[in-house]
Design a protein around this nucleic acid. Structure first.
Lengths: 349, 349
DNA sequence: CGTGCATATGACAACGTTGTCCAGGCTCTA
DNA sequence: TAGAGCCTGGACAACGTTGTCATATGCACG
C-alpha cells in the first residue's frame, strides 16, 4: 500500500462490512457527534434546519444505529430470552407466541433456544443469553437444579420459570395444575365405569409428568381402586415404545378398558393404537391438540392454556423489571376437561 | 453517606445490577486485565498457576463476560435473526427449529419475531435486528418490496428469504415448488375422475397462494376443463369465511365434487365442513399436518418439507457468511403427494 | 450597555471488551 | 557469561454510542 494511501483518513474503520457511524453522519452533515445522537433518538433541542441536514446525511449514508454500542452504554438490551424444550412442539408454539407478544408490547425482542430436554444444554443456553445481557429470562426447565442462575438473578436478570418449577432456587414459577387436571381426567373415566385404567407418561423426573402421575394415583385411590404396576408405563415418549406399552396393557387376561395419556405426543400415538383395536377402549389425554374433535370418536382431553402460561410468565417478567414485583410467587393455572367422546366410552370387558 | 465511604473506590460502577467486570477480576486475582481476557477466552500464554488464580476470582465474583462489549469490539454477534409470520403456526415450528439447529451448529443464537403477515411490521422487525447487528437474516416475507434491506445487505448482513421470494431485490431465495405441487395435486383429482373441482386459497398477493392458484389453473387447462369463477375462493383463511366459501361451492345445481385446499389452515376447516356433508366430496390439501392419516378418510396432501426449507436457508446463510457463497440463487424444493384416501374418492354426482 | 437566562450545539469521558505492542524474566547456546 | 530467542504478562487504544458538562448564540430586561 502506497504511503499516500495509508495517510488518507479511512473514515472510521468498521468491521461490519463498512457501516457508517454517527461520526460519519456528523462529518457529512457538518455537525457534532452528539447532535446526530439527538436526532437519531428524537431528543429535543435541535433546530428543524439542523435536524433536516442530519436526516439527509443519515439517509444518504444508509446509517443505522449500532445497538450493541448503545446497550454497552445504557445497560439495558430491550431483549428477553426464552429457553424452551423444542420449538417444533405444537404445545410451545402458542406459548412462545404469547411471550413474544408481551415482549413486543414492551418494545423488547425475543431471543430463543431449545434445550432438547437436556439440562446441560439448558444451562449453556441460559448463560449464553445472560452473557448477552438479556434483561430477563423465561425458562421452561429441563434440569432440576438452577443454582447456576443465582449470580445472574442477583445481578438483576429477571427470571420466570414456566410449565415446570425451578430447582433449588427461589424464583417466579407459572404452572398448570397438572395434578388436579390429571386427577379430574382419571376421575372422569372412573365416573364412566372404568376400573382398570392405564397410564402412559413421561419420565417422572420431569415435574409435569410426576404431577400427572400423582393425579392419576390420587383419583384411583379416591375411588378405592388398587393400581397394578402393569397398568403404568413411565418414561416413554417415542412412538415405538408408547405403541408397545399401549399394546401390552391392552392384552393379557385383564386388559385395561381405558387409557390416560400423559401428554399430547403420547395421546396421538395411543389414538393410533386404539384405532387398530377391535375392542373400544376409552381415552383421555393431557393437552389439547388440533383436530382432536374430528377424530372418531373425538378425543376427550385435559386442556391447559399454553398461551395463558406464556402471557402470565412474560407479564411477571416485565413486572419484575419495572420493580413492581418483588417476592417470587408460584402461580398455578387451572386446566379444563373437554369431553368429545373418547373419554365417555363405557368399559368393554 | 459518610465522607469516608464516598472516597472508597466503588469497584467499577455498573448498571447491570452490579456485575463484576474483567477489571474487577483482574484486581482480585492480582493480574492484568488482558490476562483475565486470555483466561476467559481460552487463549494460550497463561501459566497454569496464573490461570488457577484467575479462575478462582471469576468463580468468587460470579463474573460473566459481557458479550455486548465483545460484539462491539469484534464486529460479529454470532446471532442470526428469523422473521416469520406466526410462531404458533404449526408449519413454522419445524422450520424455525431447523434454522435454530443450523445456527447452533455454527455457535450462533437465534433471535426471532413474528410479522403477523404485516409488511410494515416485517420491515420494523428486520431493521431492529439489523440494528442489533445480527450476522444474518432469514426472512419469511410478508411484504413484496425489500429494497429497504439494500443498505444492510451492502453492509454485509447475510440474507436469505424462505417460503416466499424477495421483492424488488436480488437475494437468496428458498422456496417449495408451490406451482408444481398444486398442479400435481389437482391433476391427481382429475385422474380420479373429477371435473368440477373447487379451489380455496389465500390472497393472491401472497406469492405461495398465487403460485398454487396458478398450479390449479394449469392442471385444469391441461385437462381441458374450463374453470368457473364460482369454483374459486381467494383471500379467505379465517375459519368462518372458509366455511361459507366451501358450503357455497358445495351447493347449487352443479356443485364441485372435489376441493383443493390452498394451505393447512384451510384444509382443516374444509375437513370439518365435508364431515357434515351427506355426499362424499374428495379433498386434497396443500401442506401436511399431524393426524391427517387418522381422519376418516385420511387426508391426501401435497406435503412440503418445512424442516428442509429452514435447513437449506440457514445453510446458505452461513455459507454467505463464510464467503463460500457469492451469487444469489433461487432454490426450489420439490413437494410430495401423499395419498391417504380423501383424494382418491370418486366423484359423487 | 451589561447582565441574566434560555436554547442550541459540541467536546469529552465512559461503558467492558479485545488486538497490538512492549517489557521483563527466563532458558539456551556459543 | 553475554547475546539471542522465547514465554508470560500488562499498558493502552479502539469499538460506537450516550450522559455530562461547557460553550456559544440570541434575546429581554434593567
Amino acid at each position: 500500500m502506497p504511503e499516500t494511501a495509508r495517510r488518507t483518513a479511512p473514515l472510521s474503520a468498521t468491521r461490519y462490512g463498512n457501516r457508517p457511524t454517527m461520526k460519519d453522519v456528523a462529518a457529512r452533515a457538518g455537525v457534532g457527534l452528539k447532535t446526530v445522537s439527538r436526532v437519531v433518538n428524537g431528543e429535543p433541542g435541535v433546530t428543524p434546519e439542523t435536524e433536516r441536514r442530519v436526516q439527509e446525511a443519515i439517509d444518504a449514508l444508509g446509517f443505522r444505529r449500532n445497538d450493541s454500542a448503545r446497550v454497552l452504554r445504557k445497560g439495558r438490551t430491550a431483549s428477553i430470552g426464552l429457553v424452551l424444550e423444542d420449538l417444533a412442539d405444537p404445545f410451545y408454539g402458542p406459548l412462545s407466541r404469547a411471550v413474544e407478544e408481551v415482549a413486543r408490547a414492551h418494545g423488547a425482542l425475543l431471543i430463543n433456544g431449545s434445550s432438547a430436554e437436556d439440562p446441560d444444554r439448558e444451562q449453556e443456553l441460559a448463560l449464553a443469553l445472560c452473557a448477552r445481557r438479556v434483561d430477563g429470562l423465561v425458562i421452561i426447565p429441563a434440569g432440576d437444579d438452577h443454582r447456576y442462575l443465582e449470580p445472574e438473578i442477583k445481578a438483576g436478570v429477571a427470571t420466570v420459570f414456566v410449565d415446570r418449577p425451578a430447582g433449588r432456587i427461589d424464583a417466579d414459577v407459572v404452572l398448570s395444575d397438572n395434578y388436579g387436571g390429571a386427577r379430574d381426567g382419571v376421575a372422569h373415566l372412573i365416573a364412566h365405569g372404568h376400573r382398570r385404567i392405564g397410564f402412559i407418561g413421561d419420565m417422572p423426573r420431569i415435574h409435569t409428568a410426576a404431577e400427572r402421575l400423582r393425579g392419576y394415583r390420587a383419583a384411583m385411590e379416591d375411588a378405592g381402586i388398587p393400581v397394578e404396576d402393569s397398568w403404568m408405563s413411565l418414561g416413554v415418549t417415542d412412538p415405538q415404545r408408547v405403541r408397545r406399552a399401549a399394546e401390552e396393557m391392552l392384552s393379557g387376561p385383564a386388559p385395561v378398558t381405558a387409557v390416560f395419556a400423559g401428554n399430547n405426543r403420547v395421546t396421538v400415538t395411543v389414538v393410533r393404537v386404539l384405532a387398530e383395536q377391535s375392542r373400544r377402549v376409552a381415552l383421555v389425554g393431557f393437552d389439547d391438540f388440533e383436530l382432536a374433535d374430528l377424530l372418531q370418536p373425538g378425543v376427550t382431553v385435559v386442556a391447559q392454556d399454553a398461551a395463558a402460561l406464556g402471557r402470565t410468565a412474560a407479564d411477571r417478567l416485565f413486572r419484575q423489571l419495572d420493580g413492581t414485583l418483588l417476592t417470587p410467587e408460584r402461580i398455578e393455572l387451572p386446566t379444563r376437561l373437554i369431553t368429545r367422546g373418547s373419554g365417555e366410552l363405557p368399559p368393554a370387558d
